[in-house]
Structure formats: structure tokens, C-alpha cells
Design a protein around this nucleic acid. Structure first.
Length: 414
RNA sequence: GUCCCCAUCAUCUAGCGGCCUAGGAUACCGGGUUUUCAUCCCGGCGGCAGGGGUUCAAAUCCCCUUGGGGACGCCA
């Protein structure tokens, strides 16, 4: 999650500046960097919509690393010991890191020790490779996590030894878990893709992550375009933030309300099909307008795509999965039959006509809407709560509505 | 232990010396709207870690303490 936030800030900065966003996989540790772990990173980036202009793996650039290391050896700035190549750190003076966020941070050199740049097996160490790559790729801004601040003097020294300009640094504060320690797999860090699985919208995740450390006055809800337009390093915070998903849930709801309806339907589709009650054919043959209107009515009370999918199931011709018990009294049953009969001829089948005809039918039977409102809602939707009765009836459609009314009336008193 | 960073409500934060008896958002609690629920609107709860300075004036600047985090690998 921390990596995603770092990637996002880099991406926002690059896009805002209309610069180049390079995705570089730091795979110099064979143990850590597997095809699966790299694929997860790529898929997370794709899901979040963080598109890249160039792509590298550091291990693809070994030739360049070797040339740079050999250069240091040739000039006596590095030496070999125990089969590894070591960078010689000056014993005197100090190294200053100019950080655009934190200001100047001074590290006495005598506290730094010589460090390995090339392992005895011939592979290179991250600290060395990252500097060579940044220099070769003419990276202007190094925006990364706070945990790298202590490594930065090493990097500065290497840039200087290589005779290359030192880029600008921005060290972002850590994202903390609810236990206040750095977010890690052991302490409740959830993979980015897990949030996709939980039914979050990528733009909500992006909005949330952006706000974790960046703020723009009192504004809370940002579209991707707005973030690109407004993002500025000047508005980045210096202190660590705890990752709590209560606000993420709220943001997701906000973005679901903002989302284009057709896109929302595409996104919610897998969740509706997943339980298996609604199949592909039913999805394809149902009136699209039913889905659009239904999604529009239902999304106001949903936090995630999962919630929405569960709610939208009632739009399909499948047995209701009642959330609340459907209770129809012996007195209500004939009234509901009368309503069903009336609705067979209601035309058009829209909220206004339904309300008018329903009230008329009830009045003709000496009853009022109040007598059957809740029972009808339960019969047709399987729950006590939901959108306006006439709106949801109209959205569900005549056939399902009348069938469910009759079915519930028949089961009355059981 | 050594070094580095950070410090405003439970959480995310605004604040860059006077506009602050500290503003917004989430969460929570009330009220309104809604035939229901949600949305929405209104209100409430709740914080400048502590102590010294500097200044006419400090949440804002400086120092100390405390607290939190991070780094000290032939990991990144």
C-alpha cells in the first residue's frame, strides 16, 4: 500500500508537470523479486490507472551498472574485499541531503560506513544501481518513502563519485497501520488488489491514497483529472498517516454516486454473476434500462460494488433472497391481488402512473396505501428498506412486480 | 544503543506570527427531509503532547523534555 501511494505521488507529479513517468522495477534482489510479485505490482498499477511511458527492470541494465562500477574501481573510489566491491565513504566531513519536503538534512560521513555495491556473486546492490539508473535516465525527482532518507547520503555520495548531477529528493512520510507502526503484511497491510476484490472503485482508492499525505484546502472528493490538475508537492504533509478504511468506504460511496452509470454496470457485473443465481444470459437479456434505473436508485445506499450487486439482484427474474421476513396478513392479501391486477394495465409503467393507479385500486377496496406499503415493498424487494416504493416498482418492471405481489399474497398467513 | 524524521480532534487534515475563544472531512450522537432505509441538509461531541524562551502578539519561530515512526544488511 505504501508502494502504491509512492507510485501515485510520482505519477501525479509527472502527469501534472507533463513529464515522463517511468516504471522501473527494482528487482536486484533475486529472493524478493519474483514474476508473481512483479505481476502483482503491474496489475495494481493498471487497476489504479497509473499508466507509464517507459518500463525497465533494473536487472536488464547490468552492463551499464558494470561499466559504472568499473569506473569507480579504476579511479580508486571503490575497492574489492571478500569478493565484493565496496564503495569508499569519506571519513571526514558530512553529506547534506537537500530534500524539497524536509529541508536540508546533514549526515556526518564518519557515521556512514563503506558499503557493498556489488555482491560476491557479481550481482549489484540496489543502492548502487538506483543511482546509476537515475543518472542515466536523467531522473529529475526522486520521490520515495521516508524509510529511504537514511540511505540518501549514500546515494548523494555515489552521484558525486560518478560525476553526475544530484536529483531533487522528496521523502514522503510513512503510511502507518492502526497500531501506528509502518504498514506491513504482518500488521494489517492489505494488498491493493484486495481492495478491488472488496468492491472498491479505483478512483476512490486513488482519491483516498492521494489524500493520505496530500491535501488541498478543505476539499475531499477529487476525480483523477482534478488530482492531476491540482497536485503539488507544496501541499504534501510531513507527518505519517494511519491507514484507516472508514473514510475510504465513504469516498467509495461518493465515487459510486459520481460514476457514469454504464461504467458502473460494467464494474458491478462480475459481482452480480459471481453468486451464480443470475447468469450471463439473464444479464444480457434483461432490459438495460432496468439495470440503469435500478443501479441509479440503489447506489445511494451502497458503500461498495458488493453492496450494489447484492441490492441489484432483485432486478432479475430469480427467486428473491429476502433480507427481511416477508409478512402478508389475511387482510392485506386481497388488497395486494387487487393492486397486482391494477398494475397489469398501468400504462406507462412509470412511478407517477403506478402511484396513481395503486392508490386508486386501494381506495376502491376501502383501503389506503399505508395498509399495504410495507407488505408490498417486502413482497417485491425482500427488504423493509429501499428506494421510494413507486420508483423501485417501476424499475423492477411490471412482470416481476405483479408476479411477486401475487406470490406473496398466496403465501399470506403461512 | 547510535543516527534521522515527525508531532493540531478517535482518524485524515486546514493553519505557513495577529483574520483562531483553532476551520473542514470521516466516524459517532441528535434533529429535519423521506410512507421505509440510504442519500441530502442542520446541529452536537472532540484537538494545538509538556516546559522554557523570542515577540506588543505564538498552534504558527527557537531550545529542551516526552511521545511516535524510520534507518543502522553482500534487502529494497
Amino acid at each position: 500500500m505504501g508502494g502504491a501511494r509512492t507510485a501515485l505521488f510520482n505519477w501525479l507529479y509527472a502527469r501534472h508537470q507533463e513529464g515522463t513517468f517511468i516504471l522501473r522495477i527494482e528487482d536486484t534482489d533475486k529472493e524478493r523479486s519474483t514474476d508473481a510479485s512483479i505481476e502483482e505490482i503491474l496489475e495494481s498499477m493498471r487497476w489504479l490507472g497509473l499508466d507509464w511511458d517507459e518500463y525497465y527492470r533494473q536487472t536488464d541494465r547490468t552492463d551499464a551498472h558494470l561499466r559504472a562500477a568499473q569506473d569507480l574501481m579504476d579511479r580508486g573510489l571503490a575497492y574489492e574485499a571478500d569478493g565484493a566491491w565496496w564503495f569508499r565513504v569519506p571519513t571526514e566531513g558530512s553529506t547534506i541531503v537537500h530534500d524539497d519536503l524536509l529541508g536540508d538534512v546533514t549526515f556526518p560521513n564518519d557515521l556512514l560506513k563503506d558499503f557493498v555495491i556489488r555482491r560476491s556473486d557479481g550481482s549489484f546492490i540496489y543502492h548502487f544501481v538506483v543511482v546509476v539508473d537515475d543518472a542515466d535516465m536523467e531522473i529529475t525527482h526522486v520521490i520515495r518513502g521516508d524509510d529511504h532518507l537514511n540511505n540518501t547520503p549514500k546515494h548523494v555520495l555515489l552521484f558525486q563519485a560518478l560525476g553526475r548531477p544530484v536529483p531533487r529528493f522528496v521523502h514522503l512520510p510513512m503510511i502507518l497501520g492502526t497500531d501506528r507502526t509502518r504498514l506491513s503484511k504482518r500488521h494489517g497491510d492489505t494488498a491493493v488488489l484486495e481492495y478491488r476484490h472488496r468492491g472498491f472503485l479505483p478512483e476512490a482508492m486513488v482519491n483516498f491514497l492521494a489524500k493520505l499525505g496530500w491535501s488541498h484546502g478543505d476539499e475531499e472528493v477529487f476525480s483523477r483529472q482534478a488530482l492531476i490538475a491540482l497536485f503539488s508537492l507544496d501541499e504534501v504533509n510531513k507527518s505519517g498517516a494511519i491507514f484507516e478504511d472508514t473514510k475510504l468506504l465513504w469516498l467509495n460511496q461518493q465515487h459510486m454516486k459520481l460514476a457514469d452509470l454504464d461504467r458502473l454496470l460494467d464494474l458491478v457485473r462480475p459481482w452480480i454473476l459471481e453468486p451464480g443465481r443470475v447468469n450471463e444470459e439473464m444479464w444480457n437479456t434483461v432490459d438495460q434500462e432496468v439495470l440503469r434505473v435500478g443501479a441509479h436508485l440503489l447506489r445511494d445506499r451502497c458503500k461498495t460494488l458488493r453492496d450494489l450487486a447484492q441490492a441489484m439482484e432483485l432486478l432479475f427474474d430469480v427467486p428473491l433472497e429476502p433480507i427481511d421476513e416477508i409478512i402478508v396478513s389475511a387482510i392485506q392479501a386481497p388488497l395486494m391481488i387487487a393492486v397486482a391486477e391494477q398494475l397489469e394495465c398501468t400504462d406507462p409503467f412509470d412511478p407517477e402512473s403506478i402511484e396513481r393507479d395503486m392508490r386508486a385500486a386501494l381506495e376502491a377496496n376501502g383501503a389506503t396505501l399505508k395498509d399495504v406499503a410495507l407488505a408490498s415493498r417486502l413482497a417485491v424487494t425482500g427488504r423493509r428498506a429501499g428506494p421510494g416504493l413507486f420508483e423501485i416498482l417501476a424499475a423492477i418492471g411490471r412482470n416481476l412486480v405483479t408476479a411477486r405481489l401475487r406470490e406473496a399474497a398466496q403465501g399470506a398467513g403461512e
